[in-house]
Design a protein around this nucleic acid. Sequence first.
DNA 1: GTGTGTGAAGTGGTTCACAGCG
DNA 2: CGCTGTGAACCACTTCACACAC
Lengths: 208, 208
Amino acid sequence: MKIAEPTVARLVQYHRLLERLYNEGQKVVSSQEMGELLNFKASQVRKDLSYFGEIGKRGVGYHVERLFKHIDEILSPPRQWKMALVGLGHLGTALLGYGAFKNTKFGIQALFDNDQAKVGKAYAGIPCHHIKEAPSVIRDKGIEVIILTVPAEAAQNCIDIVSQSGRIKGVLNFSPVSIVVPDTIRVYSVDISVELEKLLFYLKQNSK
Amino acid sequence: MKIAEPTVARLVQYHRLLERLYNEGQKVVSSQEMGELLNFKASQVRKDLSYFGEIGKRGVGYHVERLFKHIDEILSPPRQWKMALVGLGHLGTALLGYGAFKNTKFGIQALFDNDQAKVGKAYAGIPCHHIKEAPSVIRDKGIEVIILTVPAEAAQNCIDIVSQSGRIKGVLNFSPVSIVVPDTIRVYSVDISVELEKLLFYLKQNSK
DNA sequence: GTGTGTGAAGTGGTTCACAGCG
DNA sequence: CGCTGTGAACCACTTCACACAC
């Protein structure tokens, strides 16, 4: 089943919201209510959910637990993806402690850095290797996903090194640059400075 | 002039790229070349740049320095926006040390947290106040932009407190939730776990 | 009556294709 | 001849509007 990217992003948010509502004991929720809580139009919510067949009850709404489990199934990976984090600076360290990575579907198996002071130690219980070791460590541990939190200048070089392993399928890039990869690798970028600049640009527009 | 959001995001990237090319001594660049370096189609690049009038030379390309200055003008804020960072956890601390915020157009004037151990101290030379003080500190210092790096559960409450000041125009939200704000405030969200889930979802698709 | 499911219409952004200038 | 600038065609996503199930 082909699902558009913005739809997937919303599914993740429905999933999170439903988990919260479930924990709060709510049994049923309407498209209207979900829309208000997530800043989406109700019609958008219904369209997204209708991709998976009739799952709501007309005149009533959606059963919170059932809908949660349904979306959970759609989003769940077939197995845990093994990941490595490259770049143990401020941001890399922050992500290691970040809630999302506590989730068992993300397993960070190795860290890489080019700083000898960090190599050989463990952070959050995960061993740090020199970036030069990456291809062999990636193969040994079966790593398929890279989280890249290195400075802009280093990003392309790090990607080149890890792709030598031939095992990498996806990259989440936090460096403020575009990287060039073989087309077997899927890249998503989180570019903090682009988001900030966008915000500032529209603030400027509004104040004119 | 109205510019679409994806266009602004690309402008920021052209800006960054041109700065780099300029520093490397390159004088001229074609839409094709910029497209390859940033993973955009050449026609997209030309369309984006054509919004500002004829700025390239046919048969030649764009003059790197001139184009850089032109985009710089478009993106530059009329004055420095004063900002505050709310939430001095891993991520907040990481952002404080992040390169983008070294840029003088972003001036972080205050920090807020609810941890008494942090209140009263300074981080990166910036004083940390208790979140309860936010409305008065925001007014005193003329702060208009908030960077929100608190846990999901705290996000809405923090936003409510800072908006009491009546001075906030924009928020960059890093918490993994949607927040509800008065419509005088513009919000951009960087939702790391949504990006990660999206990546994993498409990895799953590809492997079928 | 109430809230879903969905074709159809609308909107916004991207890509094409080529005329035109250097 | 090369590369820009741009209308027109295209495509993707969102919103509307209403029939229909509960």
